[in-house]
């Protein structure tokens, strides 16, 4: 059975570079637009890479800034200085260290 990992963001300027980074790094991600919010779904996992967001943003980006734009999620979450992920895979896409 399908297991979608999912992230829902505000549809605003702060979230746009993060959404673009997800689209760039996660082939097959599905986009559901709702008024005010955008929901991104992908089979298994979704990864956000700090470097990809920074390329778009043109400034350093701390993955914890995601707290300001993320409004819902599905999956087991992992976060460190370089990436943020939600995943149903075991083990998760990057290690807990």
């Amino acid at each position: 059975m399908s297991q979608l990992a999912s992230l829902t963001f505000y549809h605003n300027d702060d979230a746009r570079p993060v959404i673009e980074a997800i689209l760039a790094d996660n082939p097959g991600v599905q986009v559901l637009n709702m008024p005010g919010v955008v929901k991104l779904d992908r089979e298994g996992d979704i990864v956000i890479k700090r470097t990809t967001v920074e390329e778009r943003l043109g400034r350093p980006w701390d993955p914890q800034e995601i707290h300001l734009i993320l409004i819902s999620m599905a999956g087991n979450l992992d976060e460190d200085d370089d990436a943020f992920s939600v995943s149903w895979k075991h083990p998760p896409p990057f290690n807990r260290g």
Partner: peptide, 16 residues
Amino acid sequence: GFSAQSDESRHMTLGI
């Protein structure tokens, strides 16, 4: 609503 909901991913993570 969304300001409250931006705390929600943290709450959901606590739940899981």
